[in-house]
Amino acid sequence: MGDNPYQNDRGNKDRTITNTKGVGTMTPRPGTGQPMYTSEAFLIGDTMTGGYGKGPDILHECTVAVNPGEIAVIVGPNGAGKSTAMKAVFGMLDVRQGSVRLDGEDITGLSPQDRVKKGMGFVPQTSNIFTSMTVQENLEMGAFIRTDDISGTMEQVYDLFPILKEKRYQAAGELSGGQRQQVAVGRALMTKPKVLMLDEPTAGVSPIVMDELFDRIIEVA
């Protein structure tokens, strides 16, 4: 292997999202004037090291932290480990070292389903909708863990993405790329998550749709 940090061991050694000492800081929120240590964050993947199954480590002491109301972005080239870091936080790969905490609770050992129950939502980059189901059925599937009335939340999603209400009885697989992404985000919102993670939410959509989708994401935050 060469000197490219994204090729060595197929791992992520980019220090923009990797903290080798495990004590990171975040930019202070407006009006505080004080740094926010990651140990105090609402959601934190703390010095995570791990990979898929029995394969090699892809993350190397990676720390990701975010507070309520904040929009955090992981930036890096292809293969840097951006999606892998999000999957580690969501419990979709083994974290062999480090921990994941949500609102002060260690959730490292929880399954993705249990993390959803704790208040996490995740929209993967691909295969993120049920193409044979209608738009409304997709949204209903998003609320599968809820036992209360979901009609109010569904109306909120329709208010956020009006086109989905127009096409609520149409198969999701017949929608455009941008509309599919709206379905995926809307379905994740049906759980009323405390934290919503989006993996490449604008991949494959036009610039106009991308701007609109980001506007809606900002509204949610």
Rank of each mutant, 00 (worst) to 15 (best):
G2T: 11
D3N: 09
Y6E: 07
Q7P: 00
D9L: 15
R10Y: 15
K13C: 08
K13W: 15
K13T: 15
T16H: 04
I17K: 00
I17Y: 02
I17R: 00
G22I: 03
V23K: 15
R29D: 04
P30I: 05
P30K: 14
G33R: 05
P35F: 13
P35Y: 14
E40K: 12
F42V: 14
F42I: 07
T47W: 02
M48V: 13
M48Q: 09
Y52E: 10
K54L: 14
G55Q: 08
G55F: 07
I58F: 05
I58T: 13
L59V: 05
E61F: 05
V64N: 02
N67I: 02
N67Q: 14
N67W: 01
P68H: 12
G69M: 11
I71C: 08
I71T: 10
A72W: 02
A72K: 11
N78A: 01
A80N: 06
K82D: 04
S83E: 09
A85I: 06
A88Q: 03
S99H: 02
V100T: 10
R101D: 01
D106V: 06
I107N: 04
G109I: 04
G109Y: 03
G109Q: 11
P112Y: 12
V116T: 15
K118S: 14
G119W: 11
G119E: 09
M120N: 13
M120G: 12
P124S: 11
T126W: 01
S127F: 09
S132D: 14
M133W: 02
V135M: 12
Q136I: 04
E137I: 03
N138P: 00
N138R: 01
E140F: 00
M141E: 06
A143V: 09
T147F: 00
T147E: 15
T147W: 02
S151W: 00
G152Y: 04
E155H: 13
E155L: 10
D159P: 00
L160T: 08
F161H: 14
L164Q: 03
E166L: 06
E166S: 05
R168Y: 09
Q170M: 15
L175S: 08
L175R: 06
G178Y: 13
Q179W: 14
R180D: 06
R180M: 15
G186A: 05
A188E: 03
L189R: 09
L189C: 06
M190L: 13
T191L: 08
K192A: 05
P193D: 12
P193T: 11
P193V: 08
K194G: 06
K194P: 03
M197H: 01
E200C: 02
E200T: 04
E200A: 02
P201V: 06
P201I: 04
T202I: 02
T202R: 02
A203Q: 12
P207Q: 04
V209T: 08
L213C: 10
R216M: 09
E219F: 01
V220G: 10
V220Y: 10
V220T: 12
